[in-house]
Design a protein around this nucleic acid. Structure first.
Lengths: 301, 301
DNA sequence: CTTTCTAGTTTGTCCTAGACAAACTAGGCA
DNA sequence: TGCCTAGTTTGTCTAGGACAAACTAGAAAG
């Protein structure tokens, strides 16, 4: 395996498409159709890897694999929005403030971005900062990534810097451990944590005691942590990147492990489409999260 | 699938053992031997899942699967160090300072832990704080997790809180962008970032410009980020949890994507056993990291 | 007695090819 | 227009075979 050839594990790593799926596509659609080494094992040329990356990106936007694989390279390129268009049409906030911030990331100016964000945090206070700056900014970055005007590594840089800001801000919020106690985490395969940090900040500001456990907790550990910390609520976040098929199974299983006295709240783009039930509550927005907290307090009086 | 039965995907999620491995063990060793649903699909009872968790933990300590699977439950329990023993023998630092900090985590006293750590940071300064407190503490927690005296969720809590402290501390370090420029990240499947944060802090303190990209970057994105940021060095971290088999392949591949002018440095427990070559430099400790930085500066004069 | 090398064993990952169910689409009907 | 049903798409599971990398143990040499 050299720079021009990738084995199936490398393709899985680079694209996020599972080995099973790669083999199935080959069987069904005839693409990707990799070379083979002396041992009969797949060796994907770089060109196929590039096409797979593009297909994956378009799938994450809601396109269906069958269509995409059948399409020619030109047709695919057409489906992927052009960078230039995006820049002109997408920044619609009145002040152009978000555009400025995005531009800083785009220029890879980490210190500048951090400073600009700090300024806004100081000026607006935590809650407005989160709701008016961080949340929409995250959405813009998500869109920008989807349509290719942001590189993956630019999105990573944005996420990392923003995580730091939020955590730093949360650390300075008034402590004082009060109720309810809320365990915040994500399930395995879900590594996006920005949304969780936003609600953590808002909850903490409202006087809840937040127990942040980072990402990717096995379900049993989530349950044990909730019991050990005498939590009232377990809050999970799902991004759109999380495989949809798995969500309902995961929730069902976690609900069965968790004592009935502990509420289960879920949020994030990946949770949209599900609806609040006896088993769990869906938080559709940051406002909804705050509303849910208020409601919980009312009910627990 | 209910609370007492887990499908193969759930077992993979909970234990970290791949589906391929689970099926192979069943074929070879006759364990785990799950029930089947009406469709012939595996349904693992909770007892087998528990045994698998234990086996996985012992494997991570260096035991071999063949022996472990052949062993009886009693023998396994014997291999796993007892909690009580550990507590008595392990805290050997002169002051008992680390023991105090560990105890705070063990009591799930997040605010107390944060405060105690802040205090030490303020008292000792960043460098000593990292080298004398954070690094050994992390090691202790790793050991404690290995031998079962720490729950997984306790380790998560420790990691999350410590990450926050380090990031916060890094943010307050004097900025000033100087050379070299160092991109810090991990490859896919490697989510441990604590070691990376420690070196980031030390490097930043020495006046390097650090570009933190978080975890789990596809190799191509690491390479593109390094080029885009005009980095001099790419620093990766590997934990012991990272599958050993994959490391050399990953490094070889990344090295081929990366311009030769950009150095590749790797560190972490998972990197031990590899040795510095033309392709990359191995950082064996935090001291070694600082030494390597000094050396780099000398050579680039 | 220790070290190094070789031969054997263990272990994970790859392979093919078949089956089924959940998710989605499209057509017909109210 | 909205809803329901039938059909299609898609991913994940199944079995068992093969091979190479990693590790172990025994023999030979210092």
């Amino acid at each position: 395996m050299n720079a021009l050839h990738f084995n199936i594990a490398a393709v899985e790593r680079e694209t996020g498409l599972s080995k099973d799926v790669l083999r199935m596509w080959e069987r069904r659609y005839g693409f990707p159709l990799p070379d083979r080494d002396t041992n009969g094992e797949r060796l994907y040329p770089a060109a196929q890897l590039d096409r797979l990356r593009l297909i994956k990106r378009l799938m994450d936007q809601g396109h269906r694999p069958g269509k995409l694989i059948a399409a020619s390279n030109e047709e695919l390129a057409q489906l992927a929005p052009r960078h230039a268009e995006y820049r002109q049409t997408s920044f619609t906030d009145s002040t152009g403030e978000l555009a400025e911030l995005l531009a800083l990331i785009k220029q890879h100016d980490a210190p500048g971005y951090q400073q600009a964000m700090q300024q806004r945090l100081a000026r607006q206070g935590f809650q407005h900062f989160v709701q008016d700056i961080v949340a929409p900014l995250t959405e813009h970055v998500g869109e920008a990534w989807e349509n290719g005007s942001f590189e993956v590594f630019e999105e990573h840089l944005f996420t990392e810097l923003t995580k730091r800001l939020l955590r730093q801000a949360i650390a300075t919020l008034p402590g004082g451990s009060r109720s309810p106690r809320i365990v915040l985490t994500t399930v395995p395969d879900e590594q996006h944590v920005l949304g969780l940090l936003m609600v953590e900040g808002l909850f903490a500001l409202e006087g809840a005691e937040c127990i942040p456990l980072g990402t990717q907790m096995p379900l049993r550990e989530i349950s044990r942590a909730a019991v050990a910390h005498q939590a009232d609520i377990v809050a999970l976040s799902f991004s759109t990147a999380f495989p949809r098929r798995q969500i309902s199974g995961v929730l069902e299983q976690l609900r069965q492990m968790l004592p009935t006295s502990i509420a289960l709240w879920i949020g994030g783009q990946g949770a949209a489409g599900h609806s609040t039930s006896e088993d769990f509550r869906v938080l559709h927005s940051l406002d909804d999260a705050l509303y849910s907290l208020a409601k919980w307090r009312e009910n627990s009086k």
